[in-house]
Design a protein around this nucleic acid. Structure first.
Length: 328
DNA sequence: ACGATTATTGCGTTCTT
DNA sequence: AAGAAAACAATAATCGT
């Protein structure tokens, strides 16, 4: 729906005449269209919004701003690498389907029992063979398995759909590189989700993914490491700041305090941060900022949302005190 | 296997009511 | 004075290399 703006030139045929009147007018038009696209922000944390299936959620705090929308339908954008082909014929290309949504046919079941038994058996045999014929290789079957697992994880974690799409793309790439061989399929599904969260700056911890995934921690790590290495993803160590919006939202911490916490993370010595649990650092700075601004927050609660102990929170709080702006 | 970080537990101290 | 919260210390577990 929003992605339509600016990509579909044919959608504004009547305006084009007017637009040509002056260059100025043209720029105004483009600017206002752009603004319409992005003017909405999260009422709670004023973070960016994202549209998932049937609802609009905040990318930072996960607040559901609007739901039960009309499904925007197929996304008319190209999923090819070149980004050139925006053909509007044929079925929509969906990356989360093993065949990209092309030529899928399902033979339904007879729920009402109106088809005579003889015919029914024949139909059921058709279905079986038809479904078998859909997979020309083991790889395709694996891909479908992985995609459905990815979709399940995304759903359970309440993540936006574009995360799912890039996760599916990542899995494709991994498969093309042949690194899935001999490793857990579920692990790769989980790893793809984790990696795309990292890529799109919606960082979650591995633990959070493992909790809902079918894969265990070791499977995820194996797959993720392999992907990171062989696909050379541009992912470094997670920045503590990436956790702040979510934690702040869960603790009902006002935005200015969260901003202060972000600032504190930035002021922290780089040597201190490396090798330390980023979400622990985030919790420590959040706690420090809250105490400084007189916002009620105990170490216990702050540590809890970050899934660390008060003791680890304290180490960064202590460093904060020793180094600079935070009073005892 | 090793060094560093974090978790766990227990306990005396400080702050709040 | 009582209870909660924060600080401290020692040891076990875990992580990264």
């Amino acid at each position: 729906m929003w992605e339509h703006v600016g990509t579909n030139d044919a959608a504004v045929p009547r305006s084009t005449v007017l637009i040509k009147l002056t260059e100025l007018f043209k720029y105004w038009f483009v600017a206002s269209a752009f603004e319409m696209q992005f003017e909405d922000e999260c009422p709670e944390c004023s973070g960016p919004l994202s549209q998932s299936a049937g609802e609009i959620v905040c990318r930072d705090c996960g607040l559901v701003v609007d739901e039960d929308l009309i499904d925007p339908g197929p996304e008319w954008r190209s999923f090819e690498d070149d980004d050139k082909d925006r053909s509007r014929t044929g079925s929509p290309l969906t990356p989360s389907r093993h065949d990209r949504g092309l030529g899928s046919t399902d033979i339904g079941r007879d729920r009402k029992g109106r088809i005579p038994p003889r015919k029914r058996r024949r139909i059921s045999r058709w279905r079986l063979q038809h479904n078998r014929a859909q997979f020309s290789s083991k790889a395709e079957r694996n891909q479908m398995e992985a995609f459905s697992e990815i979709g399940r994880i995304i759903d359970r974690m309440g993540l936006p759909l574009d995360i799912r799409d890039t996760a599916c793309e990542l899995f494709r790439d991994a498969q093309r590189e042949g690194i899935v061989q001999g490793r857990s399929l579920e692990g790769f599904a989980a790893a793809a989700v984790y990696a795309s969260c990292r890529l799109l700056r919606l960082t979650r911890t591995k633990d959070e993914v493992v909790e809902v995934a079918k894969a265990g921690m070791s499977e995820l790590s194996n797959a993720y490491d392999a992907m990171n290495r062989d696909l050379s993803l541009p992912i470094g160590a997670p920045d503590p700041r990436e956790f702040l919006p979510r934690y702040a939202s869960e603790l009902d911490i006002p935005t200015p305090v969260e901003e202060r916490a972000k600032q504190l993370v930035g002021k922290l010595d780089e040597d201190f941060i490396v090798g330390r649990n980023p979400s622990g650092v985030a919790a420590g700075c959040l706690y420090a900022a809250a105490r400084e601004r007189g916002h009620e927050l105990t170490q216990k609660d702050a540590a809890k949302v970050a899934a660390v102990t008060p003791v680890t929170l304290r180490t960064t709080f202590k460093a904060l005190k020793e180094e600079d702006l935070v009073e005892a």
